[in-house]
Simulated scan of single mutants.
Amino acid sequence: MIFETEKLLVRNLVLKDLVPFHELENNPNVLRYADGEVKSYEENKKELYQLIEKYSNIDNDFWIYAIERINDKEFVGTVALISKDNFVEIGYRFLEKYWGNGYGYEICDATITYCKDIGIKKLVGYVVNKNIASAKILEKCNFKVTDEFVNDDNQQETKYELIL
């Protein structure tokens, strides 16, 4: 276990996550505002193996963790921490069937606490402007807008920062 909240537990991905991981990464609604494209089962299987292998790499700067519900151990999504030069980028995805349960705020808030505990000084989040729910989560967690731009997919995007 990496950390937990009242309802959720964050842990390393494992091979048994393949089916829900594929469901997450194969849903165009989940990926609508995210980098990446819908992938096949085999492509997602390969990616899951690569993400699991990264846990043992001491120079890893790309951490993707599973999020599961504490009460029934159901996989509900992923949270990412990606180290950059002077900050860590946060990202999260949830299976569509779990949208609207407050998990986004709960995981973002707990991830901030976790990052403070491990000595991270600055978190950054990027949100496509049409992704109103994600923007509200970052704002509720006290992230501040620091930049607005058009991304590589020709969408308006906002950069948010939080000094820890």
Rank of each mutant, 00 (worst) to 15 (best):
D153S: 10
E68N: 03
S83P: 04
D61A: 09
V150E: 12
A133K: 13
V79P: 05
N86K: 09
V10F: 02
E161V: 01
D152G: 13
K121R: 10
D153F: 07
D109Y: 07
Y114V: 04
F62K: 11
D117K: 08
Y98K: 09
F94L: 15
H22N: 05
C141V: 01
V124M: 13
E4N: 02
K130L: 12
N57F: 04
E157N: 12
N131K: 01
D147F: 13
K54Y: 10
N29Q: 12
L51M: 14
N86F: 09
E74A: 15
Y98L: 11
L138G: 02
K144N: 03
L24G: 08
A80V: 15
I82W: 01
A66W: 00
Y49I: 12
L15P: 00
I118T: 08
L31C: 09
W99Q: 11
A110Y: 06
N151G: 02
K45D: 04
F75T: 03
R32G: 02
S83E: 14
P28Y: 04
V127R: 15
L81W: 08
V88L: 06
L162F: 08
I82P: 00
V127K: 14
F21H: 09
K7L: 03
F21Q: 07
L9F: 10
P28E: 04
E47S: 12
K16S: 15
V150S: 08
S83Y: 14
I2M: 02
K116Y: 01
C141A: 07
D35T: 10
W99R: 10
L13M: 06
L15E: 05
D17G: 08
K136F: 13
E68D: 09
K122W: 01
E42P: 03
E89A: 15
K136W: 09
L9A: 13
V76Q: 07
I67G: 00
L13H: 03
N131Y: 02
L24E: 08
F94Y: 14
V38F: 13
K116I: 09
N151E: 02
Y55Q: 11
N151K: 00
K140C: 06
G36N: 10
Q155G: 00
E53D: 15
L51A: 12
G91I: 13
K97G: 03
